[in-house]
């Protein structure tokens, strides 16, 4: 056998794939089609699908504005309270949608996993694309809300892609880890709604991180979503938002650690998915 031909592969027990990333590239069309499927299916389930992705963030915004802005009277930087909440809801909803979709993706596509070969990592990642579409819709909503309040965003809004990237890395890390754990320990899925519920309260979604007392700020930043949300507020609202650099650096470091641990665990277990699923 000529060993250097393009389609030559060797499968050996216990050895990890040599050309994993080349293989990923080769399956890019599958990635594209799987995201396309998820998007179509989501928005085909008619009006409700689209309506839900609009109504949910607005409802949350209203509730948080009443609780934290009107009742607790927390400070709102230099923006109307609804905008303060909504800028945080953008990355938070992305994270929670992406985590929900990706952590279940392997289990809900069990049949494909056990009958077809493809780099498994495609599954949780492609399922996050729907969350990205929802994010885009929410972004348009934010624009409408800003027009309504005659609020002009800061020029720093050009940095949004960077913070979105950070949000994507956080969600991918968490999604890969939980989806792989889900295959092995089937009750792990019950943990996801808990993370999302609890995370919403401990993340600075309904209030600004500046309300956290200085000495707790470091510990508070151990939640990687704190860095993402602060970044969103800083780049959209700008004026009156302090950028707490030490906390942001901690968020980034933790995000990278989470992502690497997740990637390594996923790569280590993905070959046995088909046997267990």
């Amino acid at each position: 056998m000529e060993e250097n031909s393009k389609d030559y592969i060797v499968i050996e027990a216990g050895k990890s794939e040599k050309n994993y990333f080349r293989d990923l590239w080769r399956y890019k069309e599958l990635f594209y089609f799987l995201s396309w499927r998820d998007i179509i299916v989501r928005y085909k389930q008619t009006v409700i699908g689209v309506a839900w992705s609009i109504i949910r963030p607005i409802l949350t915004m209203v509730v948080f504005t009443i609780i934290f802005g009107k009742i607790a009277k927390l400070p709102s930087a230099d923006a109307p309270y609804p905008i303060l909440v909504f800028t945080a809801l953008l990355p938070w909803q992305f994270f929670s949608n992406a985590l929900q979709e990706s952590s279940n993706s392997l289990i809900s596509n069990a049949n494909m996993i056990s009958k077809i070969y493809f780099p498994r990592i495609i599954m949780p990642i492609s399922s996050m694309i729907v969350a990205l579409v929802d994010f885009a819709i929410s972004f348009i909503l934010l624009a409408i809300i800003m027009v309504f309040y005659r609020f002009v965003p800061s020029w720093k809004i050009v940095f949004i892609p960077l913070f979105l990237l950070l949000a994507i890395i956080v969600s991918t890390g968490a999604g890969l880890l939980i989806s792989a754990l889900n295959v092995k320990y089937r009750d792990f899925r019950y943990i996801v709604p808990f993370i999302i519920q609890f995370g919403l309260y401990i993340s600075p979604v309904g209030f600004s991180s500046d309300t956290i007392p200085g000495k707790w700020r470091m510990i508070y930043s151990l939640n990687p979503m704190v860095g993402v949300i602060d970044g969103f507020r800083w780049s959209i609202i700008g004026k009156g938002v302090q950028f707490y650099m030490p906390g942001f650096i901690i968020s980034i470091i933790l995000t990278i650690i989470l992502f690497l641990v997740a990637l390594i665990y996923f790569r280590k277990t993905e070959k046995t998915f088909a046997d267990r699923i």
Binding site: M1, E2, D7, Y8, I9, I11, E12, A13, I116, K271
Partner: peptide, 20 residues
Amino acid sequence: LKLLSRITEPTEGKISIKGR
């Protein structure tokens, strides 16, 4: 068939394949 198509990993041994 699952081993040849890389759906699952062998516990021991080696497979070499040339071709799509």
